[in-house]
Nucleic acid binder design. Structure first.
Lengths: 151, 151
DNA sequence: AGCAAGTATCTCGCTGAGCGAGAGAATAAG
DNA sequence: CTTATTCTCTCGCTCAGCGAGATACTTGCT
């Protein structure tokens, strides 16, 4: 078996990496009394906050593939934990704005801070040309997966 | 902000890629009437089968972080779908051997076949030296995440 | 203006994945 | 041959997420 072994090994590496990242996230979530979905929601909210975007329950549910009932439940959970606050949008009072609390940002630091620091440090052992190659590679793979999702 | 922008961009790319892969898996699972956990189990079973390893409910549950009750439920589901069969181990009759059915292998082809083919094709646009760099990079990142999981 | 149609969120009742505790059934140790 | 250990399964429960529909607000039509 196997002329073109190397690409397959890369595919398995990619899969292994995503499994590790998922496990890391799940364990972090469990350690802080939240569910994987809660963590995904938090990441989404923090990203949006940093980008200065307003997130509503509808948008969040869409991003996480939850229906409105599930989204309401998720937000009730996050609000009870003091991670998010609901505020009526004064422009369009049907809408609700989701505001992340200080605690959520700290929690995000705990999750990212540690891991991201280590990842960046490990990247330090690659020269700029290599990092550029890695970047191209990741982009190419992401595009393939995203494209495969429409079918 | 930002001398060392590039590494952060890579971190986000990495995260984006895992999100895409997760979504792909979840959508594939839903389309075939199974849950994300079922798909994870199937992947584990197919990997083990290809490596010639015997998988028991205990081992599977450990790999997926399910307790014994949850594992029994998972296997009932997979068995009802005709993807897996339970066989008593004749050596140690407390154990159960999990045997993947033909249908599961076909399903695995459907999941991997398409996506893996596309990924490998996209890798064709990188020369061997670049693929080697990507490999080193993915390995380094995987090690960092795995190490972070002990803490 | 006033009323229909559309949009954003929430409530209610339910299904089912996964948990904790413990029951069997088989093997291993003394 | 009795006791401890190992592997799986059963029972009862909790709670995330779904479908259907209620509610509140906005927009467009006449």
């Amino acid at each position: 078996m196997s002329e073109a072994e190397e690409p397959m090994r890369l595919v398995h590496l990619l899969r292994g990496l995503t499994v590790e990242l998922d496990l890391f996230g799940a364990e972090f979530a469990a350690r802080h009394g939240l569910h994987p979905t809660d963590l995904r929601a938090l990441i989404h909210l923090l990203d949006a906050a940093r980008a200065g975007e307003v997130v509503t329950p509808g948008r969040l549910g869409e991003a996480l593939r939850l229906n409105s009932a599930g989204t309401t439940g998720l937000l009730d959970r996050l609000e009870r934990l003091g991670l998010v606050r609901r505020e009526r949008d004064p422009q369009d009072r049907r809408k609700v704005r989701l505001v992340v609390e200080e605690r959520a940002i700290e929690l995000g630091q705990g999750f990212f801070g540690g891991l991201i620091g280590d990842l960046v440090a490990a990247m330090g052992r690659f020269d700029p040309a290599e990092l550029a190659t890695a970047r191209r590679f990741l982009l190419a793979m992401t595009e393939v997966v995203a494209a495969a999702r429409e079918a």
